[in-house]
Computed example of a mutant assay.
Amino acid sequence: MTENIQGKVVVITGASSGLGEATARLLALQGAKLVLGARRLDRLQSLARELNLADQAVVQTDVTDRHQVQQLVDRAVDLHGRVDVMLNNAGVMPSAMLERLHVDEWDRMIDVNIKGVMYGIAAALPVMQKQKSGQFINVASVAGHKVGPGGTVYAATKHAVRVISEGLRQEVKPYNIRTTIVSPGAVATELTDTITDPDVAAGMRQVYEQAISADSFARVVSFAMSQPEDVDINEVLFRPTSQAY
């Protein structure tokens, strides 16, 4: 189901790898107009060349910097005059037991996973309000529904994404804006590479042995985008069939 995607202007954060890259590849095939942001500019530029995007369609973006996120959205408006979809995808998962007191990692997760999403909303919301249309797609996690040892802060950030998204959904009704939460389980990305705690990393590697392709996430995003304007897919939670929790 790919109707209603052709020609849509889509901004993606965290687009240089994993979920963001897979989604960019699928939406490019489906005719979307992409503007991609990530910290790793070289990888963004390589992806843009593969997808035949203009050089201006990529912007080096650290989502912990509100001004950089604003510049990313502004680039989309400069190039295409509008923003139809804001995919707030950038995230990190340096999980550890609380007793390890990895406070710097707690701060990093809060800055990327929560503030990064809010900065994306702050940048794109005025554009969508003016258009009286648009869609936010915010990436949460199965961890936003269920917390386990070692994942406390990560789960808290992803629960926050769900709460923020639901509040946004209720507030933007006068502007015909849609809001979608995507909550993946074990999907093959570089996310587990950010785990520095050896015990948690070992356990997570076991979970991710059953991980499914990032293409699964891209198809969920495509599904949510492709619905008619009067249909708002509010949340999709999905896992590998073999994942028990």
Rank of each mutant, 00 (worst) to 15 (best):
G185T: 02
R43H: 07
R49F: 09
D232L: 00
Y208A: 10
T241E: 14
L125Y: 04
N4L: 11
G18F: 01
D230A: 12
A76G: 03
L36D: 00
M1R: 15
I195G: 00
D111Q: 12
Q45D: 03
P228W: 09
R49Q: 14
V92G: 01
V187I: 14
T194Q: 02
G37F: 03
H102C: 12
M204L: 11
V92S: 04
M225Q: 02
R239V: 12
A160Q: 04
L53E: 01
K132H: 15
I177C: 12
R205Q: 15
L101N: 14
V153I: 12
G81A: 08
G14D: 07
I5W: 01
R75Q: 13
T192S: 12
Q131T: 06
N89M: 03
M97I: 11
N176W: 06
V221E: 09
R40M: 02
V103T: 08
L125K: 02
A156C: 10
A15Y: 04
T64M: 09
P240L: 00
E166Y: 11
R219N: 09
V172H: 10
G151W: 05
A156S: 14
F223M: 02
E229W: 14
S226W: 02
A143F: 14
Y119H: 15
A188C: 05
A140Y: 06
S16V: 07
S133Q: 13
T64N: 06
I110L: 15
S213L: 07
R239G: 07
Q206D: 15
T64I: 08
Q71C: 10
S165M: 08
F223S: 06
T189I: 03
A188S: 13
I212V: 12
S213Y: 06
N52V: 13
K130S: 11
V69Q: 02
L87T: 04
M128N: 05
Q45I: 05
S165A: 13
N176T: 03
V117C: 07
D65F: 07
E229H: 14
D65G: 07
L47W: 03
V59I: 09
D74F: 08
S216M: 12
R178A: 02
D104L: 10
V236G: 00
A211L: 08
A202K: 13
V117Y: 08
M93V: 02
A122E: 13
I114K: 06
E99S: 14
H67L: 15
V58Q: 01
G120Y: 06
R39Q: 06
A57G: 05
N113K: 02
I212W: 02
M128R: 00
V187N: 04
A24L: 09
D65M: 02
M118L: 15
N234F: 09
R43A: 06
P240K: 04
D104G: 07
G148M: 13
V220Q: 01
D193N: 11
T180P: 07
M204V: 11
R66V: 14
E21G: 01
I177K: 03
R239Q: 13
S183Y: 07
I195S: 00
R40D: 07
L101W: 14
A143R: 05
V83R: 03
D199H: 12
K8H: 02
P174Q: 05
I212R: 08
G134T: 09
K158T: 00
L237Y: 00
M1V: 11
N234G: 11
L79G: 10
S133N: 14
A38N: 09
Q135D: 04
V73R: 01
G203F: 06
Q210P: 05
K158A: 05
T2H: 13
H102R: 13
V147R: 04
H67Q: 15
L26P: 02
